[in-house]
Lab assay of single mutants.
Amino acid sequence: MFKRLMMVALLVIAPLSAATAADQTNPYKLMDEAAQKTFDRLKNEQPQIRANPDYLRTIVDQELLPYVQVKYAGALVLGQYYKSATPAQREAYFAAFREYLKQAYGQALAMYHGQTYQIAPEQPLGDKTIVPIRVTIIDPNGRPPVRLDFQWRKNSQTGNWQAYDMIAEGVSMITTKQNEWGTLLRTKGIDGLTAQLKSISQQKITLEEKK
């Protein structure tokens, strides 16, 4: 169930391209415009997507990853294993993690069937560096609404905000991946996880038929 919630949630996290980005210092504006741009692209490019579902990787690479804190999220997933990894191991892992996100997020976007969304009203940021933004996803086919909290983090150097995690039903996506990959990290280390991520990233994206 959580895996499905995570995939549905990713439908609204794909941010804007650099040329049309919203105010990078306001995570609420980023979330709002990102959702609108993403849904528009999914709707307008269905012919290309249906002809070649792996085209979704391109959308992810162009529109999402430049505005997601990939390395920060990847380091959180590694936890204690990050500090013990060599620079070469980290570089290989982050490259594999990025390719994994292209496949995983692309597969999530393949679930698009006309969903709509509501974003919580903007709250004062103050001096906060981590801000959760509640998004409610509404399914046109009558499924119950899904309420999610996207975690946005302020870059201490640039002042810009980027998304790095999502919490559904009190469970963090980062925590879920830590639990899912924990045994592999304990037995085969970061190299074993890197190899698995490379394998997963090679899987073809498949479209979910409308139910």
Rank of each mutant, 00 (worst) to 15 (best):
M1F: 00
M1H: 00
F2G: 02
K3M: 02
R4A: 10
R4D: 06
L5A: 02
L5I: 06
M6Y: 05
V8Y: 15
V8M: 13
L10D: 00
L10K: 00
L11Y: 03
L11M: 06
L11G: 01
L11P: 02
L11S: 01
I13T: 05
I13P: 00
I13F: 12
A14L: 14
A14I: 11
P15V: 04
L16R: 01
L16H: 05
L16C: 07
L16F: 13
S17C: 12
S17F: 14
A18I: 15
A18R: 12
A18K: 13
A19H: 05
A19V: 07
A19S: 11
A19K: 04
T20I: 15
T20C: 13
T20A: 10
T20Y: 08
A21S: 10
A21R: 09
A21F: 05
A22Y: 07
A22H: 10
D23A: 12
Q24R: 11
Q24Y: 09
T25I: 12
N26D: 11
N26R: 07
P27T: 07
P27D: 00
Y28E: 13
Y28N: 14
K29P: 12
L30K: 12
M31P: 00
D32A: 08
D32Q: 09
D32G: 09
D32H: 12
E33P: 06
E33L: 04
E33H: 05
A34S: 12
A35Y: 04
A35L: 11
A35N: 11
Q36H: 12
Q36R: 08
Q36L: 10
T38A: 06
T38W: 05
F39D: 01
F39L: 02
F39P: 00
D40T: 15
D40P: 15
D40R: 12
D40V: 09
R41C: 06
R41I: 03
R41Y: 02
R41V: 05
K43F: 09
N44Q: 14
E45V: 10
Q46D: 07
Q46T: 07
Q46E: 11
P47G: 13
Q48A: 11
I49A: 10
I49E: 06
I49Q: 04
R50T: 09
R50G: 12
A51V: 12
N52F: 03
P53M: 08
D54A: 09
D54R: 06
D54W: 04
Y55P: 03
Y55E: 10
L56P: 06
L56Q: 15
L56S: 07
L56N: 05
R57N: 15
T58R: 08
T58F: 06
I59W: 01
I59H: 01
V60W: 00
V60A: 15
V60R: 00
V60Y: 03
D61R: 01
D61T: 05
D61L: 02
Q62A: 12
E63K: 03
E63T: 08
L64N: 00
L65P: 01
L65R: 04
L65M: 15
L65E: 12
L65D: 03
P66S: 08
P66V: 04
Y67L: 03
Y67N: 03
Y67A: 05
V68D: 03
V68F: 15
V68I: 11
Q69V: 02
Q69P: 05
V70M: 06
V70P: 15
V70G: 13
V70A: 14
K71S: 05
K71M: 03
K71Y: 03
K71V: 02
Y72H: 02
Y72W: 03
A73S: 08
A73C: 04
A73K: 02
G74A: 04
G74R: 00
G74H: 01
G74W: 00
A75K: 01
A75E: 01
A75S: 11
A75C: 06
L76A: 01
L76C: 05
L78Q: 07
L78V: 05
G79K: 01
G79C: 02
G79Q: 03
Q80T: 15
Q80L: 05
Y81L: 04
Y82S: 01
Y82Q: 01
Y82A: 01
K83L: 05
K83T: 09
S84Y: 12
A85T: 08
A85E: 06
T86L: 09
T86K: 12
A88P: 11
A88C: 10
A88S: 12
Q89M: 09
Q89V: 07
R90L: 05
E91D: 13
E91C: 05
E91V: 08
Y93Q: 03
Y93I: 02
Y93H: 05
Y93K: 00
Y93E: 04
F94I: 09
F94H: 13
A95T: 11
A95V: 11
A96K: 03
A96E: 12
A96H: 08
A96R: 04
A96L: 10
F97W: 08
R98H: 09
E99L: 07
E99C: 15
Y100S: 09
Y100N: 13
Y100M: 15
K102N: 12
K102M: 09
K102H: 08
K102Q: 11
Q103W: 07
A104T: 12
Y105R: 00
Q107W: 03
A108F: 04
A108P: 13
L109T: 13
A110Q: 13
A110W: 04
A110M: 13
M111Q: 05
Y112N: 09
H113Y: 11
H113Q: 10
G114L: 06
G114F: 12
G114Q: 06
G114N: 10
Q115C: 00
Q115L: 02
T116C: 14
Y117W: 09
Y117T: 09
Y117H: 09
Q118D: 07
Q118I: 12
I119L: 10
I119R: 11
A120N: 12
A120G: 09
P121I: 10
P121A: 06
P121T: 06
E122Y: 13
Q123I: 11
Q123Y: 05
P124T: 11
L125D: 06
G126T: 10
G126E: 11
G126F: 08
D127I: 04
K128S: 08
T129I: 10
T129H: 08
I130P: 01
I130G: 01
I130F: 04
P132T: 14
P132Y: 03
I133L: 09
R134G: 01
R134D: 00
R134N: 02
R134K: 02
R134E: 02
V135K: 00
V135P: 00
T136F: 12
T136Y: 14
T136Q: 14
T136E: 07
I137Q: 15
I137F: 05
I138C: 15
D139L: 15
P140I: 13
P140K: 15
G142T: 08
G142I: 07
P144I: 08
P145H: 07
P145S: 09
P145F: 06
R147A: 02
L148T: 07
L148I: 15
L148N: 02
L148C: 15
D149G: 02
D149M: 05
D149S: 03
F150Q: 03
F150V: 04
F150M: 15
F150P: 01
F150D: 01
Q151T: 05
W152A: 05
W152D: 00
W152L: 04
R153C: 03
K154E: 09
N155P: 01
N155G: 02
S156A: 03
S156D: 02
S156H: 03
T158L: 04
T158S: 10
G159F: 07
G159T: 09
N160T: 08
Q162E: 05
Q162W: 02
Q162I: 02
Q162P: 00
A163F: 00
A163Y: 05
A163E: 01
Y164G: 01
D165T: 02
D165E: 07
D165H: 01
M166S: 11
M166E: 01
I167N: 06
I167T: 14
A168L: 15
G170S: 02
S172M: 00
S172I: 03
S172T: 06
S172C: 05
M173F: 06
I174H: 06
I174L: 15
T175L: 10
T175N: 04
K177I: 14
Q178T: 07
Q178H: 07
E180L: 02
E180I: 06
W181P: 00
W181A: 15
G182T: 13
L184Y: 05
R186L: 08
T187R: 11
G189W: 02
G189H: 09
G189E: 12
I190E: 08
I190H: 08
D191H: 06
D191E: 09
G192A: 15
G192E: 15
L193S: 11
L193K: 01
L193W: 03
A195T: 13
Q196C: 15
L197P: 02
L197E: 05
K198G: 11
S199C: 11
S199W: 13
S199D: 10
S199T: 10
I200M: 12
S201H: 14
S201F: 10
Q202L: 06
Q203M: 06
Q203D: 12
Q203T: 10
K204N: 07
K204T: 10
I205V: 13
L207S: 09
L207M: 14
L207K: 15
E208A: 14
E209D: 10
E209K: 09
K210P: 13
K210W: 12
K210F: 11
K210V: 10
K210H: 13
K211W: 14
